[in-house]
Every structure is written in structure tokens, then in C-alpha cells.
Design a protein around this nucleic acid. Sequence first.
DNA 1: GTCTATAAGGGGATAGAC
DNA 2: GTCTATCCCCTTATAGAC
Lengths: 181, 181
Amino acid sequence: MARTADPTGRDRILSTATALFYTHGVRAVGMAQVIEAAGCGKNMLYRHFPSKAALAAAYLARVRAQRDRSAQAALDGAWNDPASRLVALVAEVAAWNRRRDYRGCAFRNYLTEFPAGDDEPARVARDYLRDTRHQIDTLVAALGSPPLLADRLWLLIDALYAATGSDPEVAVDWSRELVGL
Amino acid sequence: MARTADPTGRDRILSTATALFYTHGVRAVGMAQVIEAAGCGKNMLYRHFPSKAALAAAYLARVRAQRDRSAQAALDGAWNDPASRLVALVAEVAAWNRRRDYRGCAFRNYLTEFPAGDDEPARVARDYLRDTRHQIDTLVAALGSPPLLADRLWLLIDALYAATGSDPEVAVDWSRELVGL
DNA sequence: GTCTATAAGGGGATAGAC
DNA sequence: GTCTATCCCCTTATAGAC
């Protein structure tokens, strides 16, 4: 169809792969399935993503970018005190949890699917966990609270990502109580 | 070697499969790998477990039996009041969490690997989650506390099963505080 | 030169047959 | 226990349309 390079090609493929990987899991989705859903040729996919691991890493990086933007928006919409910002972070996870297409945490899910993985996607996943945990620690320190508060808030976030049928609002209310709001 | 059926055969196979499935994930482990590790013939495995789904269901049922026994032992070792029993249940999960070979919750992991599954193993997994949640609800009702306590304790248990590097003791102490001990 | 479509390589999956 | 059938996996290579 197009004689010139399709600038939307890579993004369209990655968008398709992201939806499939997140919904069904990385292991359950084959490259052929991504190709068919994206409506592209095999050649094009492998030029942009030389392997499935590369595609999975790009998938996780894309989700991370979305999550970071969403978390930043939550912080921007909160009061400027550490307590409000901590609650805003928990509430943001809860809001994500309530989405109809919610299927847990993409990074924790990946590490469950590939427990011994130390390739690029695993690094992206572990970096996200480390960075978000660090974000909590920093805000708790700014609040002047003992590290125990960070441990507890992190437990709440872990629980929200597990999502075995609990009401996310319980966690948000609890976090508010924890930080003294 | 043996002319009569090996009574330990089925159990040996299931034991091997349990270790492999739990450590590496169900999807990552092939039937050939189970056969080789169990040191049995292919026909013997398929005689006892006609499909991989049947083997996975038996694996989850076996883990459930272990978990139920362990939870019961924790209850038996606790005081007979609902508060102590609730803490004992949380502490039992924390103790499991501290094991070196801990790799998360077998049931939650399976549901992550097969999110749309409604076959036998998925039913075993979901039944476990439903029953353990019900166990918490019952004890909280016996304690005379509002359902919110059960929601919160369930969040702690979910968090313990996620286990992204938190100290399990934090959850146990928190549960003790929650039930008023 | 850039895309799609198709075929094939090389391996491993589940499962069945003897 | 071995051997085979069938299928799907990831990946590469080839051929054809614009």
C-alpha cells in the first residue's frame, strides 16, 4: 500500500502487543497473534522488535510510561504536602484497579510468568518496582514518619495490585488514616 | 523392575510436578520435563494424569492440602479466641513467605498464568481464594467486629502473597494491632 | 525502498501407540 | 520406554505489490 515508511507502524504494533500481553499474559500470546491483530507483515514486526523479548520489554516500558504519567498526574492534582501525595499515589493505583480491563500489575505479572528471568523485560519490571517503592520511601521521609509507614503503605499497594476481589476504596481510606488525614 | 503397580508412582510424579510447577510456573514446565525429573515412563504419567490440565489441577489440589494442614496447625497452636486465630492465620502466611523456596501463592500465580481459564485447575485456585476469604470473614464475625476488619486483613494477606521484598513481620504486627492484641 | 504474504527451518509442546 | 503424529512456537528467508 504505502511506498514510504509508515511512521505509525511501530506504535501500532506496540499498542496491539500491549493490549494482548496485558490481557492474556506474555507467554500466552504468540508473535503470530500479534502480527495478525496488528494487521502487519512479519517482516515489519521483526524489524522494529528483533525478538519477542525485545517486544515484551517495549511493552513493559510502554506500560511504565503510562503508569508514570498517571502517577504524576495524581501527584499534580494533590496538595503539596507529603501526606496528601502519598494518599494520591495509593488512590491512583485504586483507580486503575477499578478499570474494567484491569488485570493486575503488568510488572508483577511478568515476573510471575518468568520468575528466573534476568533479561531486559525482567529488568524493566524490577526497575519499576524498585523506583515506585523508592518514591514511597522518599515521601514518607519527607513527612518525617518512621520507615514503618512506608512498609505499610507498600503492603497496601502490593495488595491493590493483587486484586483478588477486594474493594480498592478500603485501601485508599486506610492509607488516609495511616498518614493522618 | 516391578511387575505390580508402584503405589508410590503417582505420588512421586505429583511431588515432582508440584516442585517444578511451583518453582518455574505451569506454562514454563513441559510434560517431558516432569517425566524426566520423575524418572518415569510417559505412559505411566498419562495413566495417572490424562492431560496436563489434570496434572496441574492435582498439583494445585496438593498444594491446597498442604496449605490447609498448615493453616489448621496454626489455628490449633493459637489461643481459642477469634483475634488470636486471625493473627495466627496471617502469621502462617508470613512464615510461608519467609521460606527460601517461596515463590508466591500457587493459586494466584496460576490465575495470572491463565487469566481466562475456567477449567479444573482454575476452579481449584478460585475455590481456595474463596474459602480462605470466607475463613477470615467467619472469624471476624465471631470476633464481633465490622466487616471492614475482614477487608483489611484480606488486604494484608494479599500483600503477603505478592511479596515484592517487604518484611512479612510488618504484616503480622499490623494484624495483631488490627484485631486489638 | 517499504510494505504484505507465504513458506520453511529448527525446536519443543501435548498426546497417543506399540 | 521408545517411537511417532500433530501441532504451535519463534525466527528467518523468499516472493510479490505498491
